Amino acid sequence: MTKSKTPVGCPCGGPALAACCGPFLDGAAVPPSAEQLMRSRYTAYALRNEPYLLSTWHASTRPGEQIIDPKEQLQWLGLEVKSGLRLRQRKAEVQPDEDFVEFVARCRIGGRGQRLHEISRFLREPDAAGTPRWFYVDGEFPA
């Protein structure tokens, strides 16, 4: 009798990786929303996929140095999206190509638990091929 393999959920909290963030990380699809891009970036951090992170970072704020230290003992534990709704709708100016996503990501660094609470800003612009896609720009850390 063989054991059937249960699909492992996506690090972002979604279904199996192949049905969630996997196609984005593999380049087979482009995240259609800022929230899906944020979730796929969390997954990329969890899987230590630096090329994906850099490719989804807006050119105006993209770091020029390495962002993942392979020696760092970092384990991502979970993601909670606090606001998947467009926070920008609270503002007077509506920008269809700008969006914000608030989230809390939990991790363990060197055995010690930490939380990252961020309101991330995303812009939708054409990529090098002219296809509109979302890019991470920057984030604020609420008190």
Score class of each variant (00 low, 15 high):
residue 47 L to A: 01
residue 106 R to G: 10
residue 37 L to Q: 04
residue 20 C to Y: 03
residue 30 V to C: 11
residue 55 S to L: 04
residue 105 A to L: 05
residue 58 H to Q: 10
residue 86 R to T: 07
residue 110 G to Q: 11
residue 121 R to G: 03
residue 112 R to N: 10
residue 66 Q to S: 07
residue 99 D to V: 08
residue 34 A to M: 11
residue 105 A to M: 02
residue 141 F to M: 05
residue 72 E to R: 15
residue 140 E to R: 12
residue 119 I to T: 02
residue 108 R to Q: 15
residue 47 L to R: 14
residue 37 L to D: 05
residue 104 V to N: 01
residue 138 D to V: 01
residue 137 V to S: 09
residue 38 M to E: 04
residue 142 P to D: 09
residue 136 Y to R: 05
residue 15 P to R: 13
residue 118 E to H: 00
residue 77 L to C: 13
residue 14 G to L: 09
residue 77 L to F: 01
residue 16 A to L: 05
residue 31 P to Y: 03
residue 64 G to I: 00
residue 116 L to V: 09
residue 134 W to A: 05
residue 125 E to I: 09
residue 60 S to H: 07
residue 96 P to W: 05
residue 35 E to P: 06
residue 123 L to S: 08
residue 16 A to T: 12
residue 36 Q to W: 06
residue 16 A to K: 10
residue 142 P to K: 06
residue 43 T to F: 02
residue 8 V to N: 09
residue 20 C to A: 08
residue 1 M to A: 12
residue 71 K to L: 03
residue 67 I to D: 00
residue 110 G to L: 12
residue 1 M to W: 03
residue 43 T to L: 06
residue 113 G to K: 15
residue 89 Q to R: 14
residue 86 R to Q: 13
residue 140 E to H: 00
residue 2 T to C: 00
residue 134 W to Q: 01
residue 65 E to V: 10
residue 110 G to V: 11
residue 100 F to S: 08
residue 112 R to V: 15
residue 54 L to V: 04
residue 55 S to P: 03
residue 11 P to M: 06
residue 9 G to L: 12
residue 76 W to V: 02
residue 99 D to I: 03
residue 40 S to M: 07
residue 124 R to P: 00
residue 23 P to K: 10
